[in-house]
Design a protein around this nucleic acid. Structure first.
Lengths: 253, 253
DNA sequence: CCGAGCGATTAACACACGTTATAGACGTGC
DNA sequence: GCACGTCTATAACGTGTGTTAATCGCTCGG
């Protein structure tokens, strides 16, 4: 029963991942949910590999991803790129909005995405009118920071294979909470070059590490389909603990 | 005139770095300043290398550093440690507080520190009663996140020497805004082993990189006294841009 | 149907960085 | 004044990862 209960383990993508996410952190009132629904109307479809915001931009409002995967990244003068976060459906950026702030990094789609822009005005209304929303948004900011710290640990102290395993674990858990995983895998739209820029590795070495994970029978990766053949092993390799995502009882088994 | 004007370039440590920091982000009302002063009373002196919060703790409130330098860090099972942030006077942690949240990392002093604990109750009063404080706190959270992203770029894509140079640049600018730098240097309480755990390097290689910076005449480091002999060069090596700190016109020259 | 381009793969080689070990310098407590 | 621990420094050696480059397979546009 529990396995098929759509409220605990959705069979497909959930309709309003953002509302579900916030509601998971802080129980929202019905009015708050309605307001959020209203605010996330008018999402646009945007193709893959498109910049949503660039370094130096002064966004009027924030961004909400409702479908697809996007990323935050920074560029160096020599052309090197560091991806600092992945945004999955339900994730936002710059909702903890502050006027007159210049972007110090950029945001781009990885796969095609559905993106809603939320203006500063509606954001202020949301926060002012719905304390539960304000509290939940503060929680998302905390989780964002905790995730950045975990990535720092990942890049700073783990080996190449461990880093990639950790990323795969994190994405599995995060996508699972929005109903975007199959039982044993998910769609991974990043290229090996993206993974390299995420993990602080060269794309050649990412390939080597993937081969190693494959040879050990831990994963299978064909095209954009990642299958996790041995979840326990993957978690062990990555030394993955989901506590930093602060999912509470929504955490995956 | 401008150089000696204590409001723009304080000659010594400023008395309430936290208030100055928030006021720099969002102009605070006099009542807000008074309330913040009240809240930060009763700071305790704590020795070096003492844990303030441990992973798994459920802090009742937040922490404010008024003197000394502390750090956030995470441990791995194999004993490896990753330092994810340094807290200088005026910095806080977990003020964007959320009830029933378990720490997913730890906080410890590096040098001896003066530390104020701010309870959830006074924090709620501050935020509810002073919108400017709430807004400024949101800004600090944004800067924290931007700093984490910059660190990710640092560790993920820069060489050993560049990473260390970047850290030295960042600390110089941050300490300067709270009046804790000399004209050409500051006190660096971290050991080389700390720097290693910060930059994702071995302590041996940190030493090698420091020697290299010394040989080039960029820095001098005797004991805990860091002297920057060639600031322009150091910035170039680190490819340092202070924009992610969002200091506006408080940024160093 | 063909060429162009991008992504994945693999090989060969180079080097930045890690590991282990030892010794010296410094402070600190007894 | 001595023993001790901690931090810095340096050497020798090993290796994980980067670099360059070539090949192969797709997909997509014409």
């Amino acid at each position: 029963m529990a396995l098929t209960d759509p409220t605990t383990r959705p069979a497909g993508p959930i309709v309003h991942p953002f509302i579900a996410k916030l509601d998971g952190f802080v129980a929202l009132t019905e009015e708050a949910k309605a307001a959020l629904k209203q605010a996330s109307l008018g999402a646009h479809l945007i193709g893959p590999r498109i910049d949503l915001l660039r370094e130096g931009d002064m966004p009027e409002g924030g961004i909400l991803i409702t479908e697809g995967i996007a990323c935050r990244y920074k560029h160096r003068a020599n052309g090197a790129r560091q991806i600092t976060a992945y945004l999955v459906p339900g994730d936002t950026c710059d909702l903890e909005f502050h006027p007159f702030r210049e972007m110090d990094d950029a945001i781009a789609t990885v796969s095609a995405c559905r993106v809603a822009r939320i203006s500063a005005a509606t954001l202020n209304e949301l926060v002012a009118g719905h304390p539960t929303v304000a509290q939940a948004l503060r929680m998302t900011a905390l989780v964002d920071k905790a995730t950045l710290r975990e990535w720092l640990l990942n890049i700073g102290s783990r080996s190449a294979m461990e880093r990639i395993a950790h990323l795969f674990c994190e994405l599995f858990v995060r996508l699972q909470t929005v109903g975007l995983t199959a039982e044993d895998g998910y769609v991974l739209p990043m290229t090996q070059s993206d993974l390299a820029d995420t993990a602080g590795l060269s794309s050649v070495h990412v390939n080597r590490s993937l081969q190693s994970l494959r040879r050990q029978g831990v994963i299978d990766l064909k095209g954009k389909n990642l299958t996790i053949l041995d979840w326990a092993r993957l978690k062990t390799i990555a030394e993955f603990k989901a506590n930093y995502l602060h999912l509470g009882d929504r955490a995956a088994a």
